[in-house]
């Protein structure tokens, strides 16, 4: 069995490699796939060099499982094509609310995995995943009626660029210099921003709606 990581050079892709280094997942070959920008780059996995391949012409029939960790647009464009040849485990939000795509936290609802219709399985939003894993054992015992949650999210959810910017902004503030935000709507260093993702008409943001809808789907 072979596996592929799409978006292998990004934040989540590199983290997936780290997890695979530690786990004993039985696979033969690992293919690292990314945009043409990263093609040819070398990444070391378990002491061996792996060359990054171009997503545009990657043959998904070579693998049994493909992890997609390259964001919504890439999943929208490539996941269904890939799913004709292999099982796709998608980190993006694109398929999460698709009724034919199970939304899985294994400890919570692995029973939904026998309903794979499109060869695609979705990973919940990061805030949803940690909420449902803690709520599941309590829901089983006491039946949850209502949850009110406030999240305090780190910048890494936005990728590597916001992580670097947090450090840069912090240095600028400490040096008494002016800060101009690039990846944030306001200064992030020494501050708190009450907003993630785009606003909907009712004043909520998509991040908030995702959490509410995904939690219900996960517990269904």
């Amino acid at each position: 069995m072979n596996i592929a990581i799409v978006g292998a050079t990004g934040n989540v892709g590199r983290k997936t490699l780290e997890v695979l280094e530690k786990k004993e997942l039985p696979f033969d070959n690992l293919y690292l796939v990314a945009s043409s920008k990263s093609e040819g780059q070398k990444i070391i996995f378990k002491g061996k060099d792996h060359e990054v391949l171009n997503l545009e012409n990657f043959d998904f029939s070579k693998v049994k499982i493909a992890f997609f960790a390259a964001g919504k647009k890439i999943s929208e464009k490539f996941a269904e094509k890939a799913a004709k040849h292999c099982l796709v485990i998608d980190n993006s939000s694109f398929f999460r609310m698709d009724p034919d795509v199970p939304l899985i936290v294994p400890q919570v609802n692995s029973s939904h995995l026998d309903q794979i219709k499109k060869n695609i399985i979705a990973n919940p939003n990061c805030s949803t995943a940690q909420l449902v894993i803690a709520c599941k054992p309590l829901h089983d015992l006491f039946v949850i009626k209502r949850i009110v949650v406030s999240t305090y999210q780190s910048v890494s959810g936005g990728g590597k660029a916001p992580m670097d910017e947090l450090i840069e902004q912090t240095k600028l503030v400490l040096d008494g210099k002016n800060v101009k935000s690039k990846n944030f709507t306001k200064q992030i260093a020494f501050n708190a921003i009450p907003h993630i993702d785009v606003f909907a008409d009712d004043g909520y943001t998509k991040e908030e709606l995702k959490m509410s809808k995904e939690t219900k789907k996960n517990f269904r």
Binding site: K15, V19, L25, F67, N91, I121, N123, A129
Partner: peptide, 21 residues
């Protein structure tokens, strides 16, 4: 509730799905 968002919220969860499959 506190968790590494890149692990439970992404990479670890994805690999655990693969393990379950």
């Amino acid at each position: 509730i506190v968790s590494d968002n890149l692990l439970r919220g992404a990479a670890l969860n994805a690999v655990e799905i693969a393990e379950t499959l």
